[in-house]
Amino acid sequence: MTEDERDTSAGPPMTRGERIRAAARTLRTPRTASWVAKETEVSVKTAQKYLDQLVEDNVLRTVEQGEQTLYCVDQLMATYREVATLQREHSRQDLTSGLESMRAKVSDWKQSYDVESPGELRASIADVDDADESETRQDIASEWEHLLDRITIVRAALNEYDWATERDSISV
Rank of each mutant, 00 (worst) to 15 (best):
T2F: 12
E3A: 11
R6T: 12
R6C: 06
A10C: 07
P12I: 14
P13K: 02
M14R: 10
T15H: 05
R16N: 08
E18L: 03
E18H: 00
R19A: 12
R19F: 08
A24F: 02
R25T: 07
T26W: 02
R28D: 14
R28F: 12
R31H: 12
T32D: 03
K38P: 00
K38C: 02
T40R: 05
T40C: 15
V42P: 01
V42A: 07
V42T: 15
K45F: 14
A47Y: 15
A47S: 09
Q48W: 15
Y50T: 04
D52C: 13
L54D: 05
V55S: 11
V55L: 14
V55Y: 13
E56I: 04
E56F: 00
D57Y: 02
V59Q: 03
V59P: 01
T62N: 09
V63D: 06
V63L: 15
E67Q: 11
E67F: 09
T69V: 15
L70R: 14
Q75W: 12
A78F: 01
R81Q: 12
V83M: 04
T85P: 00
H90P: 00
S91E: 05
R92Y: 05
D94E: 15
D94I: 13
T96W: 04
E100K: 00
E100C: 04
S101Q: 06
A104M: 09
A104K: 02
K105E: 13
V106S: 01
S107W: 02
S107T: 12
D108M: 04
K110G: 09
K110L: 07
S112T: 14
D114S: 15
E116I: 05
E116A: 14
S117H: 02
S117K: 02
R122T: 05
S124R: 08
S124L: 03
S124F: 00
I125P: 01
A126F: 04
D129Q: 12
D130F: 12
E133V: 14
D139W: 00
I140V: 15
A141P: 12
A141N: 10
W144N: 06
W144P: 08
E145W: 08
E145Q: 10
H146L: 13
L148P: 00
I151Q: 04
I151W: 01
I151G: 03
T152M: 08
A156P: 00
A156C: 01
A157G: 08
D162R: 05
A164I: 09
T165D: 00
E166A: 12
R167S: 06
V172Q: 07
